[in-house]
Structures are given as C-alpha cells and as structure tokens.
C-alpha cells in the first residue's frame, strides 16, 4: 500500500496545481483580515455564514479537494496506467485507501492551515473557536476527498460533475432548502464546528455533534466502499 501512496503523492504534487491551490486556500484568510479591518465588523453569525460556511466549507474546501482527489484515480484512468496497480496482488481495498490517503495528505494541509489562520484572525486567538473551525474543515476535507476520489474513478468528467455538485448542491440548494442540509457535506462540517464550540457558534437547525460525526463516518466509509467495489468490478482501461 505504501508504494501506491507514494506514487500517488508524486502524481498529485505538480507545482502548478499546488500553486493554484495555495492561492485558493489563502482567500478565506484574506477575506477575514479585510472584514476585520472594516470599521463595521460583521457579527459572529454573519462571519460564520459568509466566510466559514459559504466560502471555506462550501466553496474553497471542496474546490481544493476536487482538484486533488478527482485526479487520484482520474489521472490513471485517463492515461491508462491504472492497470499497473490493478494487475498486482494488492487487495483493491488497499489501493483505494492508499489513493484516498494520498489525496488527504495533499489537500488537508491547505484547508487546515487556511481554517486555522482564518479562525485565529477572526476570533482574535480564541483557541477553542480556532480548533472547532480546523476540526470542521478537516471533517469536510475527509468527506469531500472520499466522495471525489470515487467520482474520479467512475467518471472521466469528474471535475465537471464535481463543480456542478459544489455550485448547485453545496452552494445553492443546501443554502435555501432545509431538507437538503441533511445531505450536505458543508452542513455536516458546520455542525461539527457548532458542536465543538457552542459558546461561539449558536445552533440553529443544525445536527448535533454526535449525529454529525456519525453521518460523516457513514459518508466517508460509504464512498470508500464504493471505490473498492468499483475497482473490483470495473473494466480497467
């Protein structure tokens, strides 16, 4: 499994890709600084809705993860090198786990750092609030990574489909249609943040921390299992 993990890391860490992701990840930090320098600083609820939920959890995190996780299998199905891995005695589960871990290794630091700096700046060094934001962002990255790794394995148009999902589902419908929130990674992440620091982030129609973590585990494991199943059944190009 280690060899597949290292190979995938090499595949995913092109300089151009990392530079674009770094710029994306810097945006929430930049917005947080600009908002706080205004004379009329936003309330916690306004900041949470605009920056933490819509921007970080609903846009930047999924975009960064999409660019990396969809390529974990997508590059190899496209250039037909995936057979090098599937024509090996490695259990398909090990291949899927190695790919997902590699995607997380590349994507998580960007988002975790972005969340940490954004939280630290916005909440003036409040460790608990910052920790809650980082934990929520990490949960979001894990779920998006599991989903987009699977997507990269099943579709050659993973990036396009992923963008539609981010814009329409996570960005549009889940913001306006209450029922959709129960099926939204962005809202699972925000529910984790609420649960970890209820002082700062007052709950609304959110899931409890336990429910959010349980649903997150199901989504993470579910997409991983789908990837394993796909690897076992697909015609490898």
């Amino acid at each position: 499994m280690g060899a597949v993990y290292l190979l995938t890391l090499r595949q995913l860490t092109g300089r151009g890709r990392l530079a674009v992701l770094a710029v994306l990840a810097a945006l929430p930090m930049l917005v947080a600084v600009l908002l706080l320098r205004q004379g009329d600083a936003p309330s916690v609820t306004e900041f949470e809705t605009a920056v933490l939920s819509a921007m970080l959890a609903g846009s930047i995190a999924p975009l960064v993860v999409l660019a990396i996780a969809a390529a974990a299998f997508g590059n190899e199905t496209e250039d037909r090198t995936l057979a090098n891995l599937t024509l090996s005695p490695l259990p398909r589960r090990d291949i899927a786990v190695a790919k997902l871990l590699a995607a997380l290794t590349v994507a998580a630091p960007f988002i975790a750092l972005s969340a940490a700096v954004t939280g630290h700046v916005a909440f003036l060094g409040d460790a608990r609030a910052t920790l809650a934001i980082v934990a929520a962002a990490t949960v979001g990255v894990m779920l998006y990574a599991s989903a987009f790794t699977w997507l990269g394995l099943v579709s050659a148009q993973a990036i396009g489909i992923g963008l539609l999902y981010i814009v329409l589902w996570e960005g549009f419908f889940s913001g306006f249609v209450a029922g959709v929130r129960l099926l939204s990674i962005r809202h699972y992440a925000i529910a984790v943040m609420h649960g970890l620091d209820e002082r700062r982030f007052a709950g609304g129609d959110h899931l409890s921390l336990a429910a959010a973590l349980a649903v997150s585990a199901v989504v993470f494991g579910g997409f991983l299992l789908l990837s394993v199943r796909r690897l076992r059944r697909m015609d490898v190009p």
Partner: peptide
C-alpha cells in the same frame, strides 16, 4: 488479486 503474484502482464498502451 492474489493470482497476480504468478502473472506478469504488459498491456498494449505504452503510457508510463
């Protein structure tokens, strides 16, 4: 997968 301990395959496409 265990069978691939005994099999070596070189596919037609030449991407590396």
């Amino acid at each position: 997968p265990a069978l691939y301990r005994r099999i070596g395959v070189m596919a037609e496409h030449e991407t590396v």
